[in-house]
């Protein structure tokens, strides 16, 4: 047997052996395995050829197969070498495509190194040519932001799109769907049709209220529209609920989700939007809205009083968004 093919066949079972021998690994819900890789990094195998790496910046998705690896988001720059090393353990095939869900540093920080570690599909018919890095795909808004945010050109998206982009790699359709004015104006959802996995990017952060970056085009109405789109793409474990199966939604940060988790998150955001909108209609100022504590029942779970995204900042973003566009969308 060809050596590369043998390495590929061995790579996936090796994960299972590592789980059995590692001692730190767990099995969950009969179809999910996880492996602690050290330094706070954890690898979930959520489908036979689909992995999620957590703890290296934003969550990273890795789909592997005969075409090579498709990687959604590349984490932060500090973990780029580590990500490349883990990718090589998962597949001997080249990294072919990187897809960015947004342009934030914790999502695109590894772009340059991971792309350079890959090999562009355009070279399929010309194996002797100089290596061209893997393609990087993202919404046009991401390209615009990265080109002015002082990223090296080799980290920029090489393929951008205004609304959507489709790929068919490793025997499945992949839809990359731009979601305007949500977390920012550079967001995309990535829907792996056969794996039945949605990468949500920073439209969902299970650790905190969603970061609505109004300065970079984010808005509360766009955020809610994005959550509704994810709910529309996802399918619950119906009619046999006991199977606890269905679409897996991977947030930009935090734990793995199913459809009802996103419904819960969406409902919270809609309720908070309605409360703040009601206070605005009563003529309350931003200071008065903050003082009314509209997020009282959710701030223990999702709020922060310190850090880069506080509850007050979230309330202010919703307030500014509502007073700026005045639109309402469930």
């Amino acid at each position: 047997m060809h050596t590369r093919a043998l390495r590929y066949l061995l790579a996936v079972p090796a994960f299972g052996v590592a789980l059995l021998l590692g001692g730190q690994s767990t099995a969950f819900a009969q179809h999910l395995d996880s492996q602690a890789l050290g330094d706070g990094i954890e690898l979930f195998r959520i489908r036979p050829n689909f992995y999620v790496l957590m703890g290296a910046g934003a969550n990273v998705a890795i789909q592997v197969g005969s075409d090579g690896a498709v990687v959604v988001d590349t984490g932060d720059a500090a973990h780029a070498d580590r990500l490349v090393a883990e990718l090589k353990k998962l597949t001997p095939r080249p990294i072919r495509y990187l897809i960015n869900t947004t342009a934030d540093a914790d999502h695109v920080g590894g772009n340059e190194k991971v792309a350079k570690a890959g090999r562009n599909l355009r070279q399929l018919g010309n194996p002797g040519a100089n290596v061209v890095p893997a393609a990087i795909a993202a919404a046009e808004g991401a390209l615009l932001r990265m080109s002015v945010d002082k990223y090296p050109e080799s980290a920029w998206p090489s393929e951008s799109f205004p609304e959507s982009m489709n790929l068919y790699l490793n025997d499945e359709g992949i839809e990359v769907l731009h979601q305007p004015n949500a977390h920012t104006d550079a967001d995309s959802l990535v829907f792996f049709r056969r794996s039945d996995v949605v990468m949500a990017g920073d439209i969902i952060d299970t650790r905190r209220f969603p970061m609505i970056d109004v300065a970079n085009g984010g808005s509360i109405s766009g955020e809610i529209a994005a959550l509704n789109r994810i709910i529309g793409l996802a399918i619950s474990s119906i009619p046999i609920v006991s199977r606890e199966a269905g679409t897996v939604i991977v947030p930009g940060h935090g734990r793995l989700l199913d459809k009802i988790d996103v419904v819960e998150y969406r409902d919270m955001i809609v309720i908070l939007r309605d409360r703040i909108e009601h206070l605005i209609k009563q003529g309350k100022s931003l200071a008065e809205v903050k003082a009314a504590n509209p997020a009282l029942d959710y701030r223990t779970r999702y709020g922060n009083d310190k850090g880069s995204w506080t509850t007050d900042m979230f309330v202010e973003a919703v307030f500014n968004s509502l007073t700026a566009d005045g639109s309402k969308q469930h």
């Binding site: 767990t26 099995a27 954890e42 979930f44 957590m54 734990r255 793995l256 989700l257 988790d261």
Partner: peptide
């Protein structure tokens, strides 16, 4: 005697 999953694992209707 198996351990509980990590904090990043999904939450289910039945729990672990």
């Amino acid at each position: 005697g198996r351990p509980h999953p990590s904090a990043n694992a999904p939450h289910t209707r039945a729990g672990f």
